[in-house]
Amino acid sequence: MAKPQEKVSFGQRLKQIGMVFSFTAKRDKWFVPLAAGAVLIPLALTVVAVLAWGWLWLPIGILLALLGLLIVLNLRSNKAMMNAAEGQPGAAASILENMRGDWRVTPAVSSTTQMDMVHLVIGRAGVILLAEGNPQRVRGLLGQEKRRLAKVIGSAPLHDFLIGQGEGELPIRKMRMTLMRLPRALSGKDVNALDKRLKALSARPQMPKGAIPKNLRPNKATFRQGRR
């Protein structure tokens, strides 16, 4: 379930905007020129409007300049973050956890030591599996998770995507829009029930494979006494 957002003070909000501004300016060469244009063009029109119709247009012009700056910052910072996230292990889960809406994200429900991983997502679109890593290795993990989930999700839709740049893969910069466009097949109540069912499946204890270690085997004398 989406976590409730903590209240952020005005000073903290300004600090966050400054950090995003600095991050974007370092990674996007077009950000500063576009931001300058978004501010200067409305201000220039405001000067003309003030000279022609009076000072009433000054606050309107300032608000338009700030709005233009925020729009450019939002668009270019998203692009910069997507470029920075490309190829980073766990980036898909991190982006999803910060998406708007009710997205229940469980990172790395299945993984390897080579940083291949499959993330589980539950939402109004159903159950979604996102795979990151080497395509040859991660497809095996993806198949295992699909078979495991198919037994318990009932009629809920099951979607799977392999994040990457190859043929048939989903680029991480298109992931957010792709998931948002999936048809909504479940109600909020269905999402809650499915989330509880899958959490119970994950919490179910499993017997370890292989021989039982010697230090965990029952003592033979105790075993004989129990039989008597």
Rank of each mutant, 00 (worst) to 15 (best):
R173E: 14
R227C: 06
K209I: 13
V105I: 15
Q144D: 14
L216C: 01
R104K: 09
A38F: 08
A36I: 15
P4M: 03
E97H: 02
D28L: 09
S22P: 00
L198E: 04
L198W: 05
T113K: 11
A193L: 12
G54H: 03
V39G: 10
P33K: 11
A221H: 12
L141E: 03
F223W: 07
L64W: 14
N219A: 15
T222H: 09
M115F: 14
R27V: 03
L63D: 07
I172T: 09
R184F: 03
L141A: 07
R197I: 08
W55E: 09
S155W: 00
G126P: 03
I17D: 02
I17A: 14
K214F: 04
R227D: 07
M82R: 00
M81G: 04
G68A: 11
L64M: 15
E86H: 06
G90V: 05
A85S: 15
L201R: 05
K174N: 15
V191C: 11
T178C: 08
L45K: 01
P59H: 02
R147G: 01
R124G: 14
G210K: 07
V105R: 10
P171V: 11
G11M: 07
L142D: 10
P171Y: 10
K146G: 03
A108H: 13
E145I: 11
L64N: 09
I128H: 09
V152R: 06
L14K: 09
L75G: 02
M177C: 02
Q16A: 10
P157L: 10
Q225D: 13
I212Q: 15
T113Y: 00
P218T: 03
Q88V: 14
G37V: 06
E97T: 07
L120E: 05
N219H: 15
G168Y: 02
G11T: 01
N215W: 08
P208Q: 05
L40E: 11
A52L: 13
L201E: 10
G133S: 10
F161K: 05
L216H: 00
I41N: 09
N78C: 04
G68L: 11
L179C: 12
A203N: 14
A156T: 00
D116N: 13
P89V: 10
S9K: 01
Q136H: 01
V20E: 07
Q136Y: 03
L14A: 15
Q12G: 02
R104H: 13
T24P: 01
Q12S: 12
M207I: 03
A125R: 03
S187Y: 08
G154S: 02
M117Y: 00
P183H: 09
L130T: 10
R137P: 00
A108G: 14
S187E: 13
L64A: 15
N74D: 05
R224G: 01
F21L: 06
A193Y: 01
P89I: 07
A36T: 15
K15W: 12
V50C: 05
L70D: 07
L34R: 08
K220T: 09
P183W: 04
R176I: 15
P171H: 12
